[in-house]
Simulated assay, not measured.
Amino acid sequence: MSADLALIGLSKTYAASPIPAVDDLSLEVRAGTCTAVLGPSGSGKSTLLRLVAGLETPERGSVLIDGRDVAAVAAERRGVGMVFQRPLLFPHLSVLDNVAFSDRVAGMPRARARERAAHYLETVRLGGYGRRRVEELSGGQEQRVAIARALAAEPSVLLLDEPFSALDPSLRTDMHDLLAAVRGAFSPTILLVTHDRDEAARVADRIALVENGRLLHEGTVAEAYRRPRSLRAAELMGGRNAVSGHVRGGLHVSALGEVPVPGTADGAATLVFRQEDVRVDAPSPGETSLRTTGTVETLRPLGARGEIGIRASGVLVHAEVPSTSGLRPGEDVAVSVPHALVHVVPG
Protein backbone atom coordinates (compact mmCIF):
# COMPACT_ATOMS: atom_id res chain seq x y z
CA MET A 1 0.00 0.00 0.00
CA SER A 2 3.03 2.29 0.31
CA ALA A 3 5.40 3.78 -2.26
CA ASP A 4 8.48 5.98 -2.40
CA LEU A 5 7.60 9.63 -2.96
CA ALA A 6 10.13 12.03 -4.49
CA LEU A 7 9.58 15.72 -5.22
CA ILE A 8 12.20 17.20 -7.51
CA GLY A 9 12.57 20.95 -8.07
CA LEU A 10 8.88 21.74 -7.61
CA SER A 11 7.85 25.35 -8.24
CA LYS A 12 4.42 26.96 -8.20
CA THR A 13 3.43 30.64 -8.44
CA TYR A 14 -0.14 31.91 -8.23
CA ALA A 15 -1.34 34.78 -10.40
CA ALA A 16 -2.26 36.88 -7.34
CA SER A 17 1.36 37.01 -6.13
CA PRO A 18 4.73 37.35 -7.87
CA ILE A 19 6.36 35.39 -5.01
CA PRO A 20 6.42 31.62 -5.56
CA ALA A 21 4.25 29.60 -3.19
CA VAL A 22 6.66 26.68 -3.72
CA ASP A 23 10.15 27.50 -4.94
CA ASP A 24 12.45 24.81 -6.39
CA LEU A 25 11.65 22.41 -3.58
CA SER A 26 12.97 18.84 -3.50
CA LEU A 27 12.04 16.24 -0.89
CA GLU A 28 12.09 12.44 -0.57
CA VAL A 29 9.76 10.32 1.57
CA ARG A 30 10.63 6.65 1.79
CA ALA A 31 7.89 4.06 1.41
CA GLY A 32 6.06 3.37 4.67
CA THR A 33 7.48 6.39 6.51
CA CYS A 34 5.90 9.65 7.68
CA THR A 35 7.39 13.07 7.01
CA ALA A 36 5.86 16.13 8.67
CA VAL A 37 6.06 19.40 6.74
CA LEU A 38 6.33 22.17 9.30
CA GLY A 39 6.35 25.92 8.77
CA PRO A 40 4.53 29.20 9.46
CA SER A 41 1.27 30.19 7.80
CA GLY A 42 1.74 31.06 4.14
CA SER A 43 4.96 29.08 3.83
CA GLY A 44 3.67 26.87 0.99
CA LYS A 45 2.90 23.73 3.00
CA SER A 46 -0.63 23.17 1.70
CA THR A 47 0.34 24.10 -1.86
CA LEU A 48 3.00 21.41 -1.69
CA LEU A 49 0.38 18.80 -0.78
CA ARG A 50 -1.93 20.00 -3.54
CA LEU A 51 0.88 19.60 -6.06
CA VAL A 52 1.44 16.01 -4.90
CA ALA A 53 -2.30 15.29 -4.98
CA GLY A 54 -2.73 16.71 -8.48
CA LEU A 55 -5.02 19.53 -7.35
CA GLU A 56 -2.46 22.06 -8.59
CA THR A 57 -0.05 21.87 -11.53
CA PRO A 58 3.61 22.81 -11.01
CA GLU A 59 5.32 25.21 -13.40
CA ARG A 60 8.51 23.22 -13.01
CA GLY A 61 9.59 20.03 -11.38
CA SER A 62 8.49 16.42 -10.98
CA VAL A 63 6.39 14.35 -8.60
CA LEU A 64 7.63 10.75 -8.59
CA ILE A 65 5.67 7.91 -6.98
CA ASP A 66 7.71 4.70 -7.02
CA GLY A 67 9.87 6.30 -9.70
CA ARG A 68 6.98 7.22 -11.99
CA ASP A 69 6.48 10.91 -12.79
CA VAL A 70 2.82 11.67 -12.11
CA ALA A 71 3.01 15.47 -12.58
CA ALA A 72 0.86 15.16 -15.73
CA VAL A 73 -1.40 12.39 -14.36
CA ALA A 74 -4.96 13.23 -13.30
CA ALA A 75 -5.50 13.45 -9.54
CA GLU A 76 -7.84 10.44 -9.42
CA ARG A 77 -5.26 8.24 -11.17
CA ARG A 78 -2.26 8.98 -8.94
CA GLY A 79 -3.01 6.54 -6.14
CA VAL A 80 -2.93 9.40 -3.64
CA GLY A 81 -5.38 9.95 -0.79
CA MET A 82 -5.87 13.28 0.94
CA VAL A 83 -7.47 14.29 4.25
CA PHE A 84 -8.09 17.98 4.81
CA GLN A 85 -8.45 20.10 7.94
CA ARG A 86 -12.22 19.88 7.46
CA PRO A 87 -13.49 16.32 6.90
CA LEU A 88 -15.64 17.23 3.83
CA LEU A 89 -17.92 14.24 4.26
CA PHE A 90 -21.02 13.76 2.09
CA PRO A 91 -23.96 14.82 4.29
CA HIS A 92 -26.52 12.84 2.25
CA LEU A 93 -24.69 9.53 2.80
CA SER A 94 -24.43 7.38 5.89
CA VAL A 95 -21.05 6.95 7.59
CA LEU A 96 -20.69 3.52 5.98
CA ASP A 97 -21.48 4.80 2.49
CA ASN A 98 -19.08 7.73 2.92
CA VAL A 99 -16.27 5.24 3.48
CA ALA A 100 -17.51 2.98 0.67
CA PHE A 101 -17.66 5.87 -1.80
CA SER A 102 -14.41 5.26 -3.71
CA ASP A 103 -15.18 1.56 -4.17
CA ARG A 104 -18.67 2.34 -5.44
CA VAL A 105 -17.30 4.89 -7.92
CA ALA A 106 -14.88 2.20 -9.11
CA GLY A 107 -17.83 -0.09 -9.83
CA MET A 108 -17.64 -2.43 -6.85
CA PRO A 109 -20.98 -4.01 -5.85
CA ARG A 110 -22.61 -2.21 -2.93
CA ALA A 111 -22.53 -5.17 -0.55
CA ARG A 112 -18.81 -5.74 -1.07
CA ALA A 113 -18.02 -2.01 -0.84
CA ARG A 114 -19.92 -1.77 2.44
CA GLU A 115 -18.16 -4.85 3.79
CA ARG A 116 -14.79 -3.25 3.08
CA ALA A 117 -15.98 0.07 4.52
CA ALA A 118 -16.98 -1.64 7.76
CA HIS A 119 -13.43 -3.04 8.03
CA TYR A 120 -11.91 0.43 7.70
CA LEU A 121 -14.35 1.84 10.25
CA GLU A 122 -13.14 -0.82 12.66
CA THR A 123 -9.57 0.28 11.94
CA VAL A 124 -10.37 3.86 12.98
CA ARG A 125 -12.26 2.60 16.04
CA LEU A 126 -15.73 3.46 14.74
CA GLY A 127 -17.13 -0.04 14.41
CA GLY A 128 -20.91 0.12 14.80
CA TYR A 129 -21.15 3.72 13.57
CA GLY A 130 -21.88 2.81 9.94
CA ARG A 131 -25.62 3.55 10.02
CA ARG A 132 -25.21 7.00 11.55
CA ARG A 133 -25.67 10.24 9.64
CA VAL A 134 -22.77 12.63 9.38
CA GLU A 135 -24.52 15.26 11.49
CA GLU A 136 -24.68 12.79 14.38
CA LEU A 137 -20.88 12.64 14.69
CA SER A 138 -18.49 14.72 16.79
CA GLY A 139 -15.64 16.57 15.11
CA GLY A 140 -13.14 13.88 16.05
CA GLN A 141 -15.43 11.14 14.76
CA GLU A 142 -15.91 12.98 11.46
CA GLN A 143 -12.14 13.16 11.01
CA ARG A 144 -11.84 9.43 11.71
CA VAL A 145 -14.42 8.76 9.00
CA ALA A 146 -12.44 10.98 6.60
CA ILE A 147 -9.30 8.95 7.33
CA ALA A 148 -11.20 5.67 6.86
CA ARG A 149 -12.56 6.94 3.52
CA ALA A 150 -9.07 7.86 2.36
CA LEU A 151 -7.66 4.47 3.43
CA ALA A 152 -10.48 2.59 1.70
CA ALA A 153 -9.20 3.90 -1.64
CA GLU A 154 -5.93 2.05 -0.87
CA PRO A 155 -3.64 4.98 -1.76
CA SER A 156 0.08 4.45 -2.13
CA VAL A 157 0.61 7.92 -0.61
CA LEU A 158 -1.58 9.47 2.11
CA LEU A 159 -1.58 13.27 2.41
CA LEU A 160 -2.78 14.91 5.63
CA ASP A 161 -3.35 18.68 5.56
CA GLU A 162 -3.52 19.79 9.22
CA PRO A 163 -6.28 17.24 9.84
CA PHE A 164 -6.24 17.57 13.64
CA SER A 165 -5.77 21.31 14.10
CA ALA A 166 -9.47 22.03 14.76
CA LEU A 167 -9.71 19.44 17.55
CA ASP A 168 -9.22 20.07 21.26
CA PRO A 169 -5.96 18.83 22.84
CA SER A 170 -7.32 15.57 24.25
CA LEU A 171 -8.92 14.62 20.94
CA ARG A 172 -5.72 15.47 19.11
CA THR A 173 -3.83 13.06 21.34
CA ASP A 174 -6.39 10.38 20.52
CA MET A 175 -5.95 11.08 16.80
CA HIS A 176 -2.18 10.82 17.11
CA ASP A 177 -2.64 7.39 18.69
CA LEU A 178 -5.05 6.48 15.89
CA LEU A 179 -2.53 7.52 13.26
CA ALA A 180 0.07 5.28 14.92
CA ALA A 181 -2.42 2.39 14.74
CA VAL A 182 -3.11 3.09 11.07
CA ARG A 183 0.59 3.10 10.33
CA GLY A 184 0.97 -0.21 12.12
CA ALA A 185 -1.88 -1.77 10.16
CA PHE A 186 -1.21 -0.43 6.65
CA SER A 187 2.29 1.16 6.57
CA PRO A 188 1.19 3.97 4.24
CA THR A 189 3.63 6.58 2.98
CA ILE A 190 2.47 9.76 4.72
CA LEU A 191 3.15 13.42 4.07
CA LEU A 192 1.62 15.45 6.93
CA VAL A 193 1.32 19.22 7.00
CA THR A 194 1.21 20.80 10.45
CA HIS A 195 2.13 24.02 12.24
CA ASP A 196 2.54 22.18 15.55
CA ARG A 197 6.11 21.12 16.45
CA ASP A 198 4.92 18.75 19.15
CA GLU A 199 2.54 17.03 16.76
CA ALA A 200 5.28 16.65 14.15
CA ALA A 201 7.64 15.17 16.74
CA ARG A 202 5.03 12.74 17.98
CA VAL A 203 3.72 11.29 14.71
CA ALA A 204 6.52 11.67 12.13
CA ASP A 205 9.79 9.89 11.39
CA ARG A 206 11.29 12.96 9.76
CA ILE A 207 10.58 16.70 9.68
CA ALA A 208 10.83 19.02 6.68
CA LEU A 209 10.96 22.73 7.59
CA VAL A 210 9.54 25.02 4.92
CA GLU A 211 9.41 28.81 4.70
CA ASN A 212 8.64 31.09 1.73
CA GLY A 213 8.18 27.99 -0.39
CA ARG A 214 11.72 26.75 0.19
CA LEU A 215 13.03 23.76 2.10
CA LEU A 216 15.17 24.96 5.02
CA HIS A 217 15.88 21.62 6.68
CA GLU A 218 15.01 17.93 6.34
CA GLY A 219 16.01 15.19 8.73
CA THR A 220 15.00 13.09 11.70
CA VAL A 221 12.99 14.60 14.53
CA ALA A 222 16.09 14.68 16.74
CA GLU A 223 18.11 16.45 14.03
CA ALA A 224 15.40 19.07 13.56
CA TYR A 225 15.51 19.90 17.25
CA ARG A 226 19.24 19.64 17.97
CA ARG A 227 21.06 19.75 14.63
CA PRO A 228 19.18 22.35 12.54
CA ARG A 229 20.87 23.47 9.34
CA SER A 230 20.36 27.19 9.90
CA LEU A 231 19.44 29.72 12.56
CA ARG A 232 15.99 30.12 11.02
CA ALA A 233 15.44 26.36 11.17
CA ALA A 234 16.37 26.42 14.86
CA GLU A 235 13.85 29.23 15.44
CA LEU A 236 11.08 27.36 13.63
CA MET A 237 11.69 24.41 15.95
CA GLY A 238 11.21 26.70 18.96
CA GLY A 239 14.87 27.17 19.83
CA ARG A 240 15.39 30.18 22.09
CA ASN A 241 19.15 30.37 22.38
CA ALA A 242 21.40 31.75 19.64
CA VAL A 243 24.82 33.15 20.55
CA SER A 244 26.89 34.94 17.92
CA GLY A 245 30.59 34.22 17.72
CA HIS A 246 33.22 32.76 15.46
CA VAL A 247 34.96 29.46 14.87
CA ARG A 248 38.74 29.33 15.00
CA GLY A 249 40.80 26.18 15.07
CA GLY A 250 37.88 23.87 15.92
CA LEU A 251 36.54 26.06 18.73
CA HIS A 252 33.46 28.28 18.75
CA VAL A 253 34.33 31.40 20.69
CA SER A 254 31.62 33.70 22.07
CA ALA A 255 30.83 35.81 25.11
CA LEU A 256 29.85 32.58 26.87
CA GLY A 257 33.24 30.96 26.35
CA GLU A 258 34.72 28.29 24.10
CA VAL A 259 33.05 25.13 22.81
CA PRO A 260 34.75 22.45 20.69
CA VAL A 261 33.16 22.17 17.24
CA PRO A 262 35.44 19.77 15.37
CA GLY A 263 35.18 19.75 11.60
CA THR A 264 33.61 23.23 11.40
CA ALA A 265 35.22 25.73 9.05
CA ASP A 266 36.68 28.91 10.52
CA GLY A 267 34.53 32.04 10.32
CA ALA A 268 31.43 33.69 11.76
CA ALA A 269 29.03 31.17 13.30
CA THR A 270 26.14 31.07 15.74
CA LEU A 271 25.95 28.68 18.68
CA VAL A 272 22.44 27.26 19.17
CA PHE A 273 21.13 25.10 21.98
CA ARG A 274 17.73 24.15 23.35
CA GLN A 275 16.33 25.88 26.41
CA GLU A 276 15.40 22.42 27.75
CA ASP A 277 19.10 21.50 27.73
CA VAL A 278 20.30 24.42 29.84
CA ARG A 279 21.06 23.33 33.41
CA VAL A 280 20.81 25.81 36.21
CA ASP A 281 23.04 25.38 39.31
CA ALA A 282 23.57 21.65 38.76
CA PRO A 283 25.94 20.48 36.02
CA SER A 284 26.27 16.69 35.97
CA PRO A 285 29.47 15.43 37.63
CA GLY A 286 32.19 14.67 35.10
CA GLU A 287 30.18 16.07 32.18
CA THR A 288 31.99 18.30 29.69
CA SER A 289 29.92 21.46 29.55
CA LEU A 290 29.88 25.10 28.60
CA ARG A 291 29.74 26.77 32.02
CA THR A 292 29.16 30.34 33.08
CA THR A 293 27.35 32.41 35.70
CA GLY A 294 24.62 34.98 35.39
CA THR A 295 21.62 36.71 36.93
CA VAL A 296 17.98 35.74 36.50
CA GLU A 297 16.37 38.55 34.53
CA THR A 298 12.98 37.24 33.39
CA LEU A 299 10.51 34.58 34.48
CA ARG A 300 7.71 33.21 32.29
CA PRO A 301 5.35 30.51 33.64
CA LEU A 302 4.71 27.55 31.30
CA GLY A 303 2.34 25.46 33.36
CA ALA A 304 4.23 22.74 35.20
CA ARG A 305 7.49 24.33 34.08
CA GLY A 306 8.73 27.85 33.66
CA GLU A 307 11.18 29.63 31.37
CA ILE A 308 13.76 31.93 32.89
CA GLY A 309 16.03 34.38 31.14
CA ILE A 310 19.54 34.56 32.58
CA ARG A 311 21.85 37.46 31.71
CA ALA A 312 25.33 35.95 31.45
CA SER A 313 28.29 37.92 30.02
CA GLY A 314 25.87 40.23 28.21
CA VAL A 315 23.97 37.33 26.60
CA LEU A 316 20.38 36.42 27.53
CA VAL A 317 20.27 32.64 27.99
CA HIS A 318 16.85 30.98 28.13
CA ALA A 319 16.35 27.92 30.33
CA GLU A 320 13.39 25.75 31.29
CA VAL A 321 13.07 24.93 35.00
CA PRO A 322 10.41 23.27 37.16
CA SER A 323 7.73 25.69 38.35
CA THR A 324 8.76 24.71 41.88
CA SER A 325 12.36 25.92 41.39
CA GLY A 326 11.71 29.08 43.41
CA LEU A 327 14.08 31.13 41.23
CA ARG A 328 13.26 34.83 41.03
CA PRO A 329 14.59 37.80 39.03
CA GLY A 330 17.77 39.20 40.56
CA GLU A 331 19.15 35.86 41.76
CA ASP A 332 22.65 34.82 40.72
CA VAL A 333 22.92 31.32 39.26
CA ALA A 334 25.41 28.99 37.61
CA VAL A 335 24.57 27.89 34.07
CA SER A 336 25.83 24.91 32.07
CA VAL A 337 25.08 23.32 28.71
CA PRO A 338 26.59 19.92 27.80
CA HIS A 339 28.93 20.19 24.84
CA ALA A 340 27.13 17.24 23.25
CA LEU A 341 23.91 19.28 23.11
CA VAL A 342 25.24 22.46 21.46
CA HIS A 343 25.33 23.00 17.72
CA VAL A 344 26.83 25.58 15.37
CA VAL A 345 25.08 27.06 12.32
CA PRO A 346 26.56 29.40 9.70
CA GLY A 347 26.51 33.15 10.19
Score class of each variant (00 low, 15 high):
H246V: 09
T33A: 11
A200T: 11
R240A: 11
A111S: 11
V80C: 09
V253L: 14
H252F: 07
Y225H: 09
Q85N: 06
F164R: 01
T220V: 01
S313V: 05
S336P: 05
G9A: 14
E59Q: 14
V182I: 12
D168M: 05
L55K: 00
R229H: 13
A152F: 06
T33S: 10
G249P: 02
E258V: 06
A200D: 08
D277R: 10
L10H: 04
G67R: 04
A100N: 02
P346D: 15
V182G: 08
P155L: 12
P283S: 02
R328V: 12
L88Y: 11
G314T: 04
L137N: 02
G107Q: 00
L48V: 13
L126W: 01
I147L: 09
A152H: 06
V157M: 05
P301N: 04
E135H: 13
R206Q: 08
L158P: 09
P109V: 01
L51F: 02
R60K: 12
V333E: 05
Q85Y: 01
S26R: 04
H119Y: 10
N212D: 15
H318Y: 11
E223Q: 09
S325M: 07
A15C: 02
G61Q: 07
A3F: 04
G263M: 00
G286T: 05
E115P: 14
P301L: 05
G286R: 00
A265L: 07
L178G: 01
G139H: 01
V124S: 02
S254A: 06
L299R: 11
V52R: 00
A222Q: 15
V342Y: 08
G306W: 15
R86M: 14
Y14E: 05
V345M: 07
H217I: 14
E287N: 09
E122I: 03
Y129C: 12
G294R: 06
A113V: 03
E199T: 14
V95I: 07
V321K: 13
G309E: 13
P346V: 15
A75E: 13
V243K: 12
L25D: 12
L316G: 02
M108L: 15
E135Y: 15
D196H: 04
R328Y: 03
L290I: 02
D103P: 13
L160S: 12
T264N: 11
T35N: 07
L191I: 00
L126K: 01
D277G: 08
R240F: 10
R311P: 07
V321C: 10
T123G: 05
V261P: 00
V203W: 01
E211C: 11
R114G: 08
V296K: 08
E199F: 04
S138D: 06
S289L: 08
S94R: 09
L7C: 10
R114C: 15
R291I: 13
P285Q: 01
R86W: 10
E59D: 07
A334L: 10
S94C: 06
S102Q: 10
D205G: 03
P260T: 01
F101C: 04
Q143F: 04
G9Q: 10
D281G: 01
A75V: 10
I310T: 04
E331H: 03
K12G: 09
